[in-house]
Design a protein around this nucleic acid. Structure first.
Lengths: 205, 205
DNA sequence: GCAGGTAACTTACTTCCAGTAACCTACTGG
DNA sequence: CCAGTAGGTTACTGGAAGTAAGTTACCTGC
C-alpha cells in the first residue's frame, strides 16, 4: 500500500556543513532540556526535520553527537578568551579579562553550559578522553600565560594554577544560576578577590 | 516442567540494611568501571547475587541507585571534613586541614570519585536537584566557617568563597589522577598558595 | 516440630530506544 | 534529459529499563 499521508512539507536538502550546524543547535537544546540520558535521538532528528539515520551519518553515535556539541562550544569559548586577553597589560589585567570573557560566555549559554563541561561526559566514558583534550586547550592557555609572567615557576605549578582557576570559575558559574543578581562582572570580582589577593589578607590581617 | 538447574548455590537472604550497603558497593564499582550509561542494572544485580527487581525495590530506578551512591559517599566526605577541622586553630589551619581531608578522601576513592561529583548526575536532570542539595552541605559548612572568621562579610561573599574553594579542589583532584606525583599534601599546598596567599604577590610583586 | 505470616526474593514479561541494513530521490553537470 | 551521487528514508533488530504477579526462606507462637 502506497503512503497516502497528506502533502507533508516537501523535505529540504541542505549542504552538509549547514545541516551539521543545525543538528548541533537542536542537540544542544534537547540535551539541555532533557539531559543526556533522557534525550532521544528520534526526538532530535524530528526537531531537525530529518530522519534518525542522518544523525548517525553525521555523528556516528549519540555520544558522538554530545562530543560534537562540546567541541563546538569549547572552541567558541577558547576563541573568546583568546580575543579578550590579547593586548592586556600585565597579569592582573589578563586574569580579569579572561574571567570576564568566561563568565560572559556562560551567561550566553546558560541553558546548555552544564552539559558542555567535561563532567557531563563522565557518564559516557569513551567520550571523556576526547572532551578532556578539548578542555585541556583552555587550561594550557592559562598555564602558558602564567608561566609567561613567572618564568621561574615549575611547569607543574603553572598547570595546577590553571586547574584551580578553571575549577573555581566553572563552579562559580553554576552557582550564579541560583544567584541571578551575580552577573559576570561581580563573579569576576569574587574570583579575583580570592585568587589574586588571597583570603589570608582578609581573614588573618 | 520443574527447574532442573544443578544445585545452584542456595540463595541467601539478608537483612535490608546489609543488602543495601552491598548493592551500593557493587553499583559504585560498576558505575565507575563502565560509566553510568553503559552500566546495566542486570549486571549490577548479577554481581550482587540478586535479581533485578530487588534493585528497584531498594532504589526505585537506575537514577535512584546513582543518587544512593552519591549520597553515601558525600556523607562520608562531609563527616571526614568535620572531624578534620575540629579543634583547628585559626582560619589558615582550618582551610589547610579541610583541604587535606578532602584530597585524602579523593585518594581513597580514586576509581569512583568522578562519578560521585554533582556533575555526573547532569545527564539525569531529575537527580541534579537532590545531589546538589547533598553537595550544598559541603559548601554551607565552608561558608559558615568563613563567616565565622569574617563576621562583617556579606553572606553572598561567604558563599562565593565556598564555591570557589570547592570548585578549585574538585578540579585539582581530577587533575591529580594524571599527576600521580602530586599527592594530597602537595595538592593542598597548591590550593593554599593560591587561595590563601593569592597569586598577585607572586606575579606582580 | 509444625502452621501461618511476612520479608525477601524470582520469573517472565512489556516498552522504549540506540543503532543499522537496505533502499530511494532531489539535484548537478555534461 | 540522462547518469551519478549527495543527501535522504523506511523498517527493522537487539538490548536494557522497568514491572506484575507469583514464590520461598525464615521467624514466631503454639
Amino acid at each position: 500500500m502506497r503512503r497516502v499521508t497528506t502533502a507533508e512539507p516537501r523535505r529540504k536538502r541542505m549542504p552538509k556543513e549547514q545541516r551539521k550546524a543545525q543538528m548541533l543547535d537542536v542537540a544542544e537544546q534537547v540535551f539541555a532540556e532533557r539531559g543526556y540520558v533522557a534525550a532521544s535521538m528520534d526526538e532530535i532528528a524530528e526537531r531537525v526535520g530529518v530522519s534518525k539515520p542522518m544523525l548517525y551519518e553525521y555523528f556516528g553515535s549519540k555520544e558522538g553527537l554530545l562530543t560534537g556539541c562540546v567541541r563546538r562550544a569549547r572552541a567558541e569559548l577558547l576563541e573568546r578568551t583568546r580575543r579578550a586577553i590579547t593586548g592586556a597589560d600585565g597579569p592582573e589585567e589578563v586574569l580579569r579579562r579572561g574571567l570576564l570573557a568566561f563568565f560572559g560566555f556562560i551567561a550566553d549559554h546558560r541553558r546548555s553550559w552544564s552539559l558542555l563541561r567535561q563532567e557531563a561526559a563522565v557518564t559516557v566514558p569513551a567520550a571523556v578522553a576526547e572532551v578532556e583534550g578539548i578542555r585541556r586547550q583552555q587550561t594550557d592557555l592559562i598555564a602558558a600565560v602564567f608561566a609567561g609572567f613567572d618564568p621561574g615557576a615549575a611547569p607543574v605549578v603553572a598547570e595546577a594554577f590553571a586547574e584551580v582557576v578553571v575549577g573555581a570559575a566553572e563552579r562559580l558559574a553554576l552557582w550564579c544560576e541560583r544567584r541571578p543578581e551575580v552577573g559576570p562582572a561581580l563573579a569576576t570580582d569574587y574570583v579575583m578577590d580570592i585568587v589574586w589577593h588571597g583570603v589570608g589578607r582578609r581573614l588573618a590581617p
